[in-house]
Design a protein around this nucleic acid. Structure first.
Lengths: 303, 303
DNA sequence: TAAAAATACTCCATAGGTATTTTAT
DNA sequence: ATAAAATACCTATGGAGTATTTTTA
């Protein structure tokens, strides 16, 4: 609810890059350039110092960033308060989510939701994508949150965020001394995988196929049954693994694990809410908007 | 710098009318209707209770109004702080303004400006439009603020606000029992005028000419040399007078005087800043923007 | 029945995209 | 040499206008 240009400014200021901001906002880089130029014209002040490749906030830019953050906060509060007026704030909501989401994405959202709406009884079913869809169709849950995108006609898919599968190594890993490698190097690296049938493995296989490679081209040292097991293993070995960025966020932050980027090789997948076609309003709707507000690190482009 | 829809909402909430808000924003009433509908759709909540002619804020509307006010405040602060970074905040600025503006419009603005920029020494020259323009050309003042619009090539005219000349009577006036009269009734009403040569008289004469009337068609009881004298006289007689809305704002507010509208007869004039062509930036520029922020009861439509 | 809001349409300004050039490391 | 920002140009959507109808005090 603030002028879109300020949203653009905020993205550029956070990402320290016009191009990255454009990606995040799902628009093109020239569009970002124009928006920033308009702001600079209107305020008669440079907002970014362009040093060729690098950009830095100017004094005016810092002032603006501070105010924009406050305005966004107000904007979120506004939406939330009006939602609270509209919606049934008591009752029960049965949720279902596939593994990565249930373990790493939802917990903080659920905590905040409970704080804001204590009279809503939440239930969370933890299963794989297929089972979540079945539960929704069977009426066992009202709202699902899944990683894949098997398109069923009876189900409405509502994009929530983009996930990225990244290559991760232990911080002390000597094999992964560089933070960026070429795709061809991947073949020789010792990898840990999830068990067959997991969503992560599936999307990785699919992406490899696009490059005319297959799983057997890789040096898979071991398969483990859970993401937590893999993370622990990485910390004590020179292996690497493909893991959802959300699942390793805390470890990356604290420096226990690190991300190794692969040139021209990115694996993205969509997190989506699912509801039965035709079901509108009610707590499910409310929860979706609430989650959207609380959790927006990677807004989903309508691909 | 907030989404324009919120600005529209704010105007409607303040004026309690789609049509009045449209006038204030210099857009049409259907445009206002559309913006409000979009907001209501986006927030899934009615914002106004439409009771045919009257409209009232709903609960959601009240919540929104509160937040919008805060966001506007932040937005103004943002502009101001960035201005403070850009501009020379010390030095002196010589202003000139024609009578009505100098007496009724500028004082509160000057007070706030001084508070915000104590290191700027302000001087205010009080004269008529012609003299103000001469002073500007002579370099005696750097910035003028005038009521008329005599277009000189050497001077740049920057619209500031719209003024309206309204017909005013004492609150107890029995002749003016109605708050709206037809133009033909005007001929018989006892009027008090400013002296010949005043801007108010000039613009009134001009507007009468458009209706094929002239001053001598009116019943002018007396001419007085200042607006204050006229106001005092009105309070103790059954006369009426044409006065700038700004000059009577306080008296209307407190109920001492009242406005009598005339069907299909409105007298507007433009308040404009004047600067020498080519002079850009500096304290004059800064003061103009500051004034625009502080003082925006009647934003000027680019007529 | 009159004043205000809603609706129906037409049009154009601007936000966005693609292709390309410039710049700085 | 390369990655990122700026520029140029084109297109299309949505915001604004005019004209008209609906509503209710």
């Amino acid at each position: 609810m603030l002028d879109y240009r300020l949203t653009v400014f905020d993205a550029v200021a956070r990402r320290r890059s016009f191009t990255k901001a454009a990606e995040e906002l799902c628009i093109t880089q020239p569009a970002v350039t124009r928006h920033i130029k308009e702001l600079e014209k209107q305020f008669r002040a440079r907002l970014f110092e362009r040093q060729g490749n690098r950009i830095a906030l100017t004094g005016a830019g810092l002032v603006m960033q501070r105010h924009v953050m406050n305005m966004q906060e107000l904007s979120r509060q506004l939406e939330q308060e009006i939602d609270l007026l509209n919606e049934t704030r008591r009752g029960s909501l049965k949720l279902g989510a596939s593994t990565t989401i249930a373990q790493y994405v939802l917990p903080p959202v659920l905590a905040k939701f409970h704080k804001a709406s204590r009279d809503v009884r939440l239930t969370l079913l933890n299963a794989n994508t297929e089972q979540i869809e079945q539960s929704l169709l069977a009426g066992e849950i009202e709202l699902g949150l899944i990683e894949g995108d098997s398109r069923r006609r009876e189900i409405r898919y509502i994009p929530f965020a983009i996930d990225e599968i990244v290559l991760v190594s232990g911080a002390a890993n000597v094999t992964a001394s560089k933070s960026r490698i070429g795709l061809e190097k991947l073949r020789a690296l010792p990898l840990i995988m999830r068990e067959a049938g997991s969503g992560t493995l599936e999307v990785l296989t699919h992406e490899l196929k696009n490059r005319n490679m297959k799983l057997s081209d890789l040096s898979i040292e071991m398969s483990l049954g859970s993401t937590e097991a893999i993370k622990s293993y990485l910390m004590h070995s020179d292996c690497m693994a493909f893991i959802s960025r959300h699942a390793v966020a805390r470890e990356i932050e604290s420096g226990i694990l690190k991300i190794v980027e692969i040139d021209d090789f990115a694996i993205h997948r969509q997190f989506s809410f699912i509801v039965l076609q035709g079901s509108v309003g009610g707590l499910a709707d409310y929860f979706m908007r609430f989650a959207g507000r609380q959790y927006a690190p990677l807004p989903a482009c309508p691909a």
